[in-house]
Design a protein around this nucleic acid. Structure first.
Length: 896
RNA sequence: GCGGGAGUGCCGGAGUGGCCAAACGGGACAGGCUUAGGACCUGUUAGCUUAGUGCUUACGCAGGUUCGAAUCCUGUCUCCCGCACCA
């Protein structure tokens, strides 16, 4: 067995010594920016990483060999909670802990032979990186894209910090899965909503993003068109506005509900007998955890507040409620209740015995409110709606909206589900927010020249509260404006801020005056291929898009979208479940690569499944990949004396040589196309087929075999670079295989039929040539080939060598009819009309199954007349003799 | 509920109208090589058969279109994923 580990080390060393993967901007070359989502530096790589990088490296190598100027960088998402938890638990410095991990993980990555340009490495926890987070923050602040507000926030008790909406999953923390509580705090936000519309619109530009990611983002942004309707509170001048997407149901409104947080509630109940019960209700509702509110089939609760509003379209007085199913964050925090046509309102009305008024009825029958057991939400005709009666409700949406605008009782608006991004975190290990609180001047930004605001070292990690607050030196500062005593902001930024622009930084990792050099980023950006997990479909990918647009508006870049192509890889699972320590089905990549070598691990993980699908880990499959690599190694080395690198003489090629060359060209073609479509598993399958064919190639033409071997080695490079380099040097070829030109193919050399034929013959062991050879030996006067199925023409076509590439059956039949071949066609009815009349020689007898014969009879009569052929139809089962005579087989010969 | 996607041989997984009983790999079986082998090589691997081509049944289930369907259409079942009281 070959020592693949030794080979891997040898070439990794050589690559590094020569620095062959370093790149510079080069306006003469077409660029290709290949990027994987940079990892969080935990101490070891897992299978997901191996898969991610194997996918990316294969593409980077492929593009490099195709002549692109490929930037393929790696870095580390180095801020974050685990470092801080390690500090609390093991009393280690988060920085040291993180940097140590980076070293470990980097070493593993290197041992896998990925072709990164390590000179571009970045890590988000170093000053020269996070300084620019702060710089960007200040710019955002100036543009009012960063702001502070008091808000009800998602608070994770176990992490002791605030979470963004995107980080709350089913009412639980995305990181520790603990229940999330609500808390009111003053926090920093980024105004992502400013870009809501563009973020939505530009999804269309992302032609090469997976549909589901786009759909998820679309749903997350959640744009809906509707009308803001103003209701006047009875006996006052106060106006309450509500948002609805269904203005067509306006005449069916029978109540109004407020969210429990709605500020107007307190004014309205103050001093009334409703004050106490309503406040009780509000407190009770607020106490219920997020989880409870998010759970399914929640009963709708509410309470009447003793006031009424006037429906502006019909001047009806309707009651106001406070209810738990109205959300303060969406719309205006007040909802008009239309029980007949909204399921939630329906449930609410049933519970509190409110009237149900039908305003839309199906065309087929009349909807009766007392018979309804759920809301009617389908299309219909308006009723009980004054002058809009009889109108289709879809038309009515438009008409009523216009009318309300004219009457000044409503205004058409657009609503989004997307909320601003809460970036404050009460943690130590993150980018300090560069702000200062001064009792006289208020909030004052840290001047640019004072950046970075460095993370202090003298902090205590107790596990309670924000560690930054324990550093007096950090907290107590002078106000930059008045030089008076002031307090530094102790919130740090969400780590998703770091990852929202790191791909720009790679373009100029040492840039000192700006976050990134404009020229360099203009050359490299956007990222041509981004690869990562689907779990970032919303969080990271939305934030990165937002940042790109915001940075563009700051004049730092011209690109609108950061990632042209996105590939979301599937998970690696084992025994039907995601690999996890708790289940105990984890396979450590290091174990595999240690045993079989890096190439084997990479090959298997690429071959086992389509990249975007789940990959079922299979130890035996790994062994298969290992055997395959051994086979290739031996194929080259055992035949090394049969290999010549001279070019071959075309005239001296025999059928076998031509065949293997055809196979070579078609393999290059297929592998190239499959890589371009991210179908690495199929590309590898094709290489395997080629290797199988090469192994069967006897009486080798040395030059032909040499060319095949050379190209094989190059085709392998993206997947198994080490063995590729080794074989390249075994072949006594110069330079690095990794830097060679990607093999090209010659379409004209591909003989698909020969290959298909070869396959068939291989399988049946019945070489059609040998049939002919046999016939030749017997010297027949006439060869009749009977063909049962249309596709078999291709066989004959090949044999006769007298037809072009036509796939037109009629054309083929015509040709053969002229020759001395007789043809049997089972499915004659459709083909017949296409035949040309004269000189047609068709079989005298047609055989088929009963069913088919019945079907044929009609068309046959026409056929006979038209062509003057004499034919009869025989049932193969009942008239065996005739049948055998006519159709002894699919491809058979009759020797006379 | 809304939205996305998937159902193929013993297994993983290709295949989107005819070179399809279905690539490639794994597994199993038989044989060879070997002291031996988990190493390598050859063959078989839906069923029935043949000297050989063949026939039958198959790509979740049920229909349909077509000369012809795993592939297109309709219905249906199952599974996975995302969002979820968004007015």
């Amino acid at each position: 067995m070959v020592d693949f580990n030794k080979i891997a080390k040898k070439w990794q060393k050589k690559w590094e010594e020569k620095g062959i993967f370093k790149v510079k901007e080069d306006s003469k070359k077409k660029k290709f920016y290949c990027l994987e989502m940079y990892p969080y530096p935990s101490s070891t790589l897992h299978m997901g990483h191996l898969r991610n990088y194997s996918l990316g490296d294969a593409l980077a190598r492929f593009k490099r060999m195709q002549g692109f100027n490929v930037m393929y960088p790696m870095g580390y998402d180095a801020f974050g909670l685990p470092a801080e938890n390690a500090a609390i638990k093991h009393k280690v410095d988060p920085e040291k802990w993180t940097l140590d991990n980076i070293d470990k993980i980097k070493e593993q990555q290197k041992s896998l032979g990925f072709s990164y340009d390590w000179s571009r490495q970045i890590q988000s926890c170093t000053e020269d990186y996070y300084k620019w987070n702060q710089w960007i923050f200040l710019k955002f602040y100036e543009k009012k894209l960063a702001y502070r507000k008091n808000a009800v926030v998602n608070w994770c008790n176990s992490c002791g910090t605030v979470l963004a909406n995107e980080q709350v999953i089913d009412g639980k923390c995305w990181r520790c899965h603990d229940d999330v509580a609500e808390k009111e705090l003053e926090q920093w936000f980024f105004k992502i909503t400013e870009y809501a519309d563009e973020l939505l619109r530009d999804l269309e530009k992302l032609k090469h993003w997976p549909k589901r990611v786009k759909v998820m983002q679309e749903n997350w942004i959640g744009k809906s068109h509707g009308v803001e309707v103003n209701f006047k509170i009875k006996d006052t001048k106060k106006i309450i506005s509500t948002f609805t997407t269904r203005p067509d149901t306006i005449f069916g409104v029978i109540a109004l509900v407020f969210a429990v947080e709605h500020p107007m509630v307190f004014e309205l109940i103050k001093g009334t007998k409703y004050e106490k019960p309503v406040l009780d209700f509000i407190t009770k509702t607020k106490k219920r955890s997020m989880k409870e509110r998010a759970s399914e089939e929640v009963e709708k609760n509410g309470i009447f507040i003793g006031k009424y509003v006037v429906n502006p379209v019909n001047n009806e007085e309707i009651p106001i409620f406070v209810a738990d199913y109205a959300l303060m964050e969406y719309g205006t925090g007040a909802v008009m209740v239309v029980p007949a046509h909204d399921q939630r309102d329906f449930e609410f009305a049933k519970k509190y015995k409110l009237p149900i008024r039908v305003v839309i009825t199906p065309k087929q029958y009349e909807l009766k409110s007392e018979k309804m057991n759920r809301a009617y939400v389908e299309e219909g005709i308006l009723v009980n709606s004054d002058k809009f009666n009889g109108m289709n409700n879809l038309d009515a949406i438009e008409k009523i909206s216009k009318w309300m605008e004219k009457e000044k009782i409503g205004k058409r608006t657009v609503q989004y589900k997307l909320r601003d991004w809460l970036i404050s975190r009460q943690r130590y290990w993150g980018t300090p927010i560069p702000m200062i609180h001064c009792s006289t001047c208020g909030i004052v930004p840290v001047p640019y020249e004072n950046l970075p605001v460095k993370l202090p070292k003298n902090v205590k990690f107790t596990g309670a509260g924000n560690p930054l607050e324990t550093s007096e030196k950090f907290v107590n500062v002078k106000c930059p404006k008045c030089a008076g005593k002031a307090r530094r902001e102790t919130d740090t930024m969400d780590t998703f801020v770091d990852s929202s622009w790191y791909f720009f930084r790679y373009c100029s990792p040492n840039e000192a005056k700006l976050p990134f050099d404009k020229k360099a980023s203009a050359y490299w950006m956007p990222v041509d291929q981004y690869i990562g997990g689907i779990e970032h479909a919303i969080l990271h990918l939305l934030y990165a898009r937002f940042f790109t647009k915001a940075l563009r508006d700051l004049g730092l870049t011209n690109v609108d979208e950061p990632f042209s192509r996105l590939m979301t890889q599937g998970m690696v699972i084992k025994d039907g479940a995601k690999m996890s320590k708790s289940i105990g089905n984890v396979v450590d990549p290091a174990e595999i690569t240690g045993k079989y070598g890096a190439d084997t691990g990479r090959l298997f993980i690429l071959f086992a499944a389509m990249p975007e699908k789940e990959l079922e880990w299979n130890d035996k499959g790994v062994n298969g990949a290992y055997r395959f690599l051994n086979r290739i190694y031996n194929l080259v080395n055992d035949n090394i004396k049969d290999i010549s690198l001279d070019s071959y003489v075309k005239d001296k090629l025999n059928e076998k040589d031509k065949f293997i060359l055809s196979k070579m060209h078609s393999t290059i073609k297929n592998v190239t196309e499959n890589i371009e479509n991210f179908k690495y598993n199929l590309a590898i399958g094709k290489i395997m087929e080629f290797v199988n064919a090469l192994q069967k190639y006897n009486d080798k033409n040395k030059a032909v075999f040499g060319e095949c071997a050379k190209n094989l080695v190059l085709l392998l490079n993206p997947f198994t670079p080490h063995i590729s380099e080794e074989l390249w040097s075994d072949l006594k070829l110069k330079g690095f295989a990794s830097l060679q030109k990607w093999p090209s193919y010659d379409k004209s050399k591909i003989d698909e039929e020969a290959e298909a034929l070869e396959d068939n013959l291989e399988r049946t062991k019945k070489d059609i040539y040998s049939v002919i050879e046999l016939a030749k030996i017997k010297k027949p006067n006439k060869i009749i080939i009977f063909v049962a199925e249309a596709w078999k023409f291709d066989f004959i076509r090949r044999l006769k060598g007298e037809l072009g590439k036509t796939r037109n059956l009629g054309e083929i039949i015509k040709k053969f009819a002229k020759s001395d071949l007789s043809i049997y066609i089972r499915e004659i009815s459709k083909i017949a009309p296409k035949l040309v009349k004269d000189e047609t020689k068709l079989p005298k007898v047609i055989v088929g199954r009963k069913k088919e014969i019945e079907a044929l009879k009609g068309s046959l009569d026409n056929f006979k007349q038209e062509f003057g052929c004499d034919m009869e139809i025989v049932d193969g089962k009942s008239d065996e003799q005739k049948a055998k005579q006519a159709m002894p087989g699919k491809v058979a010969i009759l020797i006379e």
